[in-house]
Nucleic acid binder design. Structure first.
Lengths: 192, 192
DNA sequence: ACATTAAATTGACTGCGGTCATTTTAATAT
DNA sequence: ATATTAAAATGACCGCAGTCAATTTAATGT
C-alpha cells in the first residue's frame, strides 16, 4: 500500500517537527541547529533536507505557526474602533515577531513568497493579516477614500517599519507601540 | 611614526575594497567570496576579518556607497511637485536596491544600526533619505497635517513594502513603480 | 516466494564564513 | 645598534548548512 510509505514519511517529519519545537522552546530560534534536530529525531542529516528544502523552510513552519496563533486571537477579538485599540490588539503579535532579532530576520526574508506556486507559512499569515485588518476597515471608523485592502497593506508596511526601527537602538516595547500609534493615526485618520 | 603603521593598514584596507568592488562589478554581490577577495588582495583570510567585522560589514560599505551615489543624484534633481515626479525620482534607487535579492536582504538587515555607537553605511543612507525627502515635503505640495519627518518615514516604509512585494512573484519594475505610486498617493495626498 | 522499482534514508563530504594562537612588522625607548 | 612593545598579518582550524552517490526499505507485479 502507498499508505504505508506515506505513513513512515509523515512519522519522520512529525518527529523532526516535534524535536525542533521542543528545542526552540528550550533555547530559542536562533540557537537551533539541524544537527541537534536530526539527533533528537534519530535520523541522519540528509533526511532533514529531504523533508525540508533548507533550514529556513523549517523556520517558516515553526514561526508561521506562532504567528497564526496570534492571528487567531486577533480574529477572535472584537474589531477595534480606535487607533489605540488597534495598537493594543497588535501587542502580542509584535512581541512575538520581535522576540529575537533572528526571528524578525526570518519573517522579513520569508514574508513574500519566492514563487507563486510555493507560498510559505509566513507568507500565508501575511495574507491572513491583510484579510483580517481589511475586514476591520470595511466596518468603518477609519478613512474611506482608499480601498480597505490598501489600508491593510499600509498597516503591514508600518508594522514592518516599526519592528525594523525597534532593532536600531535599544529594544523598547514602549517606544515600539508609541511609534506604531503615530503611524497608524497618520495613515488611518488623516486630518487634511 | 604612527603614520607608517596607519598607512600600511589603510593600504591593505584599500586593496581589499578595490578587489571586492572589482569582483562585485564582475559577478554581482551574492557571488562574492571572502576567499576571492583576500586572494586578489594578496593577504591571508584572517586579515580580512581584522579589517571588517564580518562579510556584512564589507557589503555595508559597498552597497552603502551605491545607495549614496543615487541619493546624490536625487538631491541634485529639482524637488518633485507631484507624486508622479516623486516616483520617477525613485526609479534608479529602486532598481539598484532590487537588482539582486541578496542586495535587498542585506539592505533590510543593515538598514537599522545594531547599536547607537556604530551606525553603518547603509543605516546612514537611510537617515540621508529621510532628511532629503523631509526637505521636499517642507516645501509644500503634499499633506501638511503631520510633520515632514513623519511623512518621510512613511515613504521609507512604503519603499520597503514595495520592494518586498516585488520579490514575491515575478520581478517586474513596472508593477513596482505602479504600486509605489498608489501608496505614495494614499500617504501623501489623502482625500478625506 | 521472488524480482522489480520507486521512495526514503544514510553519512561522508563540500563550501564558506568566521576564529585565534602564533609570527611578523615596524615604531619607540635605551 | 639593540631591546621592547604593540599593532598587523598569518593560516590552520572550527562550526554549521547543505549535497549526493550509495544503500535500505517497502510496495507491486509475476
Amino acid at each position: 500500500m502507498i499508505k504505508q510509505m506515506q505513513k513512515r514519511t509523515l512519522e519522520t517529519r512529525a518527529r523532526l517537527m516535534a524535536v525542533a519545537t521542543q528545542l526552540v522552546a528550550q533555547n530559542g530560534y536562533a540557537a537551533l541547529r539541524t544537527e541537534e534536530v536530526v539527533q533528537g529525531a534519530g535520523v541522519a542529516k540528509g533526511t532533514f533536507f529531504s523533508h525540508f528544502k533548507d533550514k529556513d523552510a523549517l523556520m517558516d513552519l515553526l514561526i508561521g505557526a506562532g504567528i497564526d496563533r496570534h492571528l487567531d486571537d486577533m480574529a477572535q477579538a472584537t474589531p477595534p474602533a480606535t487607533v489605540e485599540e488597534l495598537v493594543a490588539l497588535h501587542r502580542p503579535l509584535l512581541r512575538f515577531m520581535t522576540q529575537e532579532r533572528y526571528v524578525f530576520d526570518v519573517i522579513l526574508r520569508l514574508s513574500g513568497a519566492a514563487a507563486v506556486e510555493e507560498i510559505g507559512a509566513i507568507a500565508t499569515t501575511f495574507g491572513r493579516y491583510i484579510d483580517l485588518t481589511a475586514a476591520w476597515f470595511r466596518r468603518g471608523g477609519f478613512r474611506r477614500d482608499i480601498p480597505a485592502e490598501l489600508l491593510a497593506e499600509g498597516m503591514q508596511a508600518f508594522l514592518t517599519q516599526v519592528m525594523a526601527l525597534n532593532f536600531c537602538a535599544l529594544h523598547d516595547d514602549q517606544k515600539m507601540e508609541a511609534r506604531l500609534e503615530v503611524y497608524f493615526q497618520a495613515w488611518l485618520c488623516p486630518k487634511v
